[in-house]
Design a protein around this nucleic acid. Structure first.
Lengths: 206, 206
DNA sequence: CGAACGCTTGACTTCTATCAACAGGTGTGG
DNA sequence: CCACACCTGTTGATAGAAGTCAAGCGTTCG
């Protein structure tokens, strides 16, 4: 529905779509590409709070909360096309289209669940368990590449993976190579392959 | 508005209102008392995801997400009176009262912010910073007792405080007595008093 | 082609969880 | 109303997980 919007904008990989602290002016629907939503923590370290892909809507939290300023930033992970929907259009849609409003309520409720789950995990699970879980979630969300290698269909820097898991990149690297040595995953540059699904699942739920 | 509901139920301190994994049957509005919302993590350890007080609505996330099962539990922190609103009544309100629907959207958006903020904090801040921040938030949310001592107006066990901060009770106790020794807070049984607001704020935002 | 950035590894330190033992308080049933 | 049992709070000692720092190498992009 929102994809029919006329304003399609191209964002190069690594481009900031909106920033924490700025006034929200609209929402974006991802036509193609991948996006990370993150908050800046201590000394500017990025904590990723949500990942998005084609079909995902981003930027709606600040608008639906009537917030003066954005509380998170968005940046493309790869080259992407986004549809821009000005806040007036969005507000009008909300007011005139009840189905859209209920759909939005669903999305918001799901976001709360995601954030609270993640909160509990970070508070209680070990680093290794969180990494294992994150790899499984990335596979679920982005799927695997069409190739025979079944690589997870997203290319993240170790730094981004660290921001998603909630740790430092050096720790991620150490754990990844440990998992590779144990034959649980495969590594080929930034491409990660899940080789032993059961073990990974067991690691994720201790 | 919802407070006018006829079904007011008394819950003794420590009583479970609803449990993770159960089918949601309605929402509750807190008439008086205090409630914690928590998720069960590793070995049943409670991670508190939200606190509630008189006037707060709880239990709506599962309903608005159309979830089959609850993803969090609720328990009273002290003796409380709750108004019960069956899901049918709640759904009817949503469909017929646009203002209520928009208000709910606001609440959901705010919950996302709270959860994502907390997520970033737990991932990045030190235990001491999180405890300092939590104490300030508790004071903001529950206010201070009417007495001259300015004690934070909620009585939590050290275990609950640990569940809120995301750590073990032994760690909380150690840090609390350290803060007391430094004159930043006062302790009288379970009552906590903020004595040096500036220092606490500085500790919370390193 | 070179500078900048990302990746990797090792060594080290620090923070925080865990365990155990005991003190103090609370609540319940007799 | 008292006594006992149980839960909560407190402290110390210890171990281990994870963060930090630094150096070197590989890759990528302008």
């Amino acid at each position: 529905m929102l994809l029919r919007s006329k304003r399609v904008i191209f964002f190069k990989k690594g481009k900031v779509i909106f920033s924490e602290g700025n006034a929200p002016v609209g929402v974006y629907c991802i036509s193609s590409g991948k996006v990370k939503l993150y908050k800046l923590g201590i000394e500017g370290k990025e904590q990723i709070v949500r990942m998005a892909k084609a079909g995902s809507l981003i930027g709606y939290r600040s608008l639906t909360g009537n917030d003066e300023y954005r509380t998170a930033s968005a940046k493309t992970i790869e080259d992407s096309y986004l549809c821009y929907i000005p806040k007036e259009t969005f507000a009008h849609l909300l007011e005139t289209n009840a189905a859209f409003a209920f759909r939005l309520i669903n999305i918001l409720a799901e976001d709360i669940k995601i954030a609270q789950d993640k909160l509990t995990d970070i508070a209680q699970k070990s680093l290794k368990a969180r990494l294992a879980e994150t790899l499984l979630e990335l596979k679920d969300f982005y799927g695997t590449a069409n190739g025979e290698d079944q690589a997870i269909n997203i290319t993240l820097t170790r730094e981004d993976l660290a921001g998603l898991v909630g740790t430092a990149s050096a720790c991620i690297i150490r754990l990844l190579s440990e998992l590779k040595k144990q034959g649980v995953i495969g590594l080929a540059g930034k491409k990660i392959t899940i080789k032993d699904y059961e073990t990974l699942q067991r690691l994720a739920n201790p």
